[in-house]
Every structure is written in structure tokens, then in C-alpha cells.
């Protein structure tokens, strides 16, 4: 079972075989998506008609490539905007939360902590729907009371951002709290003994210490927002983020331009993964 325990050759070989099959299972769908982005055919399916760059650089219908497809490029822009705002907002709140839970003692702290974890247990579709219901209740109330229509509370990018922010903050809080827990508070006290105010001490000693966690949480937050589908689906208005745009095309049946987008996403995710791995490298000490 483990290397120090003798086991039959047959067992070891079949175990290795199983693990190999598992990794083939993991990798195949991604390889297939990437491969068919180069297939010289109007459909992402067999037969293989030879290699082409058209699905990236094709200039006109029916072979409109990714880099000339205005609709897809626009939706990527929308997703980047939403993800950037969501990331910054959730990092800011998560840092506050980390200080609150790691540094302060107050009645009801455990209850608040459990409440803070709740967004992880609520299915994304329901989170989206509940925010949709509540925001339109508020908007309707304003309309009746003041005869004033708040456009921002109707389905659209603000609601999408809020919906994603609602659960991404929890994840960011967990990452940053874990790092803050490891911080030796005497370092901060030393800075204050040397004459720094509390805020200066935090800004110059504690925050630099938290930087790897902030970067790691930021990468995760950005990706989760960029790739979010369930919550976004319920709150989206007329501007579609990339996942929604891709989903609509998938259902209609699309040319391999979707494969090209997928390859772009894979490359993007891989770069971000590398960034976060370097950021979270274990400390030397």
C-alpha cells in the first residue's frame, strides 16, 4: 500500500494504471477543446480537416476569428471590468474582516464568523435570485414612494458585481485571515514603541507581511469573478460578461471560435496560476 510495505507487482502496476487513467480523464477535455480551435472546419467536431489559424485571425463571416469578433471581445472587456471591481472591493472588505476576527474580541464573534461563512453554503443560483428579488423590492419601493426609478438596481452590471462580491469576499477573508494569524504581533508593538502610530505600524509592518496573501486572494477573486456563471446568469442585464456570451453561443451551436476563446482563457488562467504560486511560496523561516 505504501512504499515501505511490500506489495505484489500486479497490484503496483494496476494502481499505477488507474492513476494514469485518472489523469487522462482530467486532461482530455481540455486538450480536445484546444486541438479543435485549429481545425479547418465550420464545426468543432470530426472530421479533422487540417490546420488553420482562422478561428483566431479570420476576418469575415463565416470564418470570423476571435480577434475580429467584436461581440466576444466586448464581453471579455465587460468581464475584466466586473472582475477588477469585484476583486478590489472584496480584498478591501476581506482585510477589514481579517483584522476584526483575528484581533478583536467581542460578544457574538463566533456567531458573526459562522454568518460570514454562509455565502459559501448558499448555491450560486439562489444567491443570485435572492439579490435579484431584494434589489427589485428596494427599487419598486423607491418608485412608489418617490416616483423615482433607480436603474442601477435592475438587472445589470452593478448587480452582477454585487452578487459576485457577496461570496468572493468570504473566500478572500479566509485566505487573508489565515496569513494574519501567523503574524507575530510583537513586530507591530515594536514599531509602535519606536514611535509609529497604530495605523502607520499596520501600514508599514503588517500589510507588507500580508502581501502574499493579498496577491493570492486577489488572483483567486479575479478568476472566480471572471469565470462565475450561476450568480451572474440570474443578475445579468443587457451587457453580457464572457461566460454568459459563451453560454448563449454554445446553446445555439457555434463555430470553433469558442475553442479559440477557451484557449485564450486557459492561457490567461495559467499565467494567473503561476503568479499566485510564486506569491504563495512557503516562507523560508
Amino acid at each position: 500500500m505504501i512504499p515501505s510495505i511490500a506489495s505484489s507487482r500486479f497490484f503496483r502496476m494496476s494502481y499505477l494504471g488507474y492513476v494514469t487513467l485518472f489523469f487522462i480523464f482530467l486532461i482530455t477535455p481540455l486538450v480536445v477543446v484546444a486541438a479543435f480551435s485549429f481545425n479547418d472546419s465550420l464545426f468543432p467536431s470530426l472530421p479533422w480537416n487540417g490546420f488553420t489559424w482562422d478561428w483566431y485571425f479570420g476576418e469575415g463571416e463565416p470564418r470570423l476569428g476571435l480577434f475580429h469578433d467584436e461581440a466576444l471581445l466586448d464581453s471579455i472587456g465587460v468581464s475584466v471590468q466586473v472582475a477588477a471591481v469585484t476583486t478590489l472591493a472584496s480584498l478591501a472588505l476581506a482585510t477589514c474582516n481579517a483584522f476584526l476576527f483575528e484581533r478583536e474580541q467581542f460578544p457574538g464573534k463566533n456567531f458573526l464568523y459562522v454568518l460570514m461563512l454562509m455565502p459559501l453554503v448558499v448555491p450560486g443560483v439562489i444567491l443570485g435570485v435572492s439579490i435579484l428579488v431584494f434589489s427589485s423590492t428596494v427599487a419598486n419601493w423607491f418608485e412608489v414612494q418617490f416616483n423615482y426609478e433607480i436603474e442601477a438596481l435592475r438587472p445589470g452590471l452593478l448587480l452582477v458585481t454585487l452578487g459576485q462580491f457577496a461570496f468572493i469576499t468570504t473566500i478572500a477573508t479566509l485566505v487573508i485571515s489565515a496569513r494574519l494569524r501567523k503574524f507575530d504581533i510583537t513586530q507591530e508593538e515594536a514599531a509602535m514603541n519606536l514611535g509609529a502610530s497604530r495605523l502607520t505600524a499596520i501600514a508599514t509592518v503588517t500589510v507588507p507581511f500580508l502581501k502574499p496573501a493579498l496577491l493570492g486572494a486577489g488572483v483567486v477573486a479575479f478568476l472566480m469573478s471572471f469565470e462565475n456563471f450561476n450568480t451572474t446568469l440570474m443578475l445579468v442585464g443587457s451587457d453580457a460578461p464572457l461566460t454568459i456570451a459563451m453560454f448563449d453561443r454554445l446553446r445555439e451551436g457555434s463555430t470553433p471560435v469558442l475553442n479559440a476563446v477557451s484557449v485564450l482563457l486557459m492561457v490567461g488562467s495559467a499565467c494567473l496560476a503561476l503568479v499566485s504560486m510564486f506569491a504563495q511560496r512557503p516562507d523560508k523561516h
Binding site: 486532461i27 482530455t28 477535455p29 481540455l30 477543446v33 467536431s45 469565470e227 456563471f229 488562467s269 495559467a270
Partner: peptide, 24 residues
């Protein structure tokens, strides 16, 4: 971990290409 850095949409799309009638 690698496959999970890629959007669920892309992964599902991969399975569609594999499983469909004209698929692999």
C-alpha cells in the same frame, strides 16, 4: 489542480465535443 483553473464552461464544452454524435 490545473483543469480547475479553467472555467467550468470550457470543461463542459470539452465534454460536449467528446460525447456528441459527431464527437471524438
Amino acid at each position: 489542480l490545473i483543469p480547475f483553473w479553467v472555467s467550468e464552461l470550457v470543461r463542459t464544452y470539452g465534454w460536449m465535443i467528446l460525447l456528441r454524435e459527431t464527437g471524438l
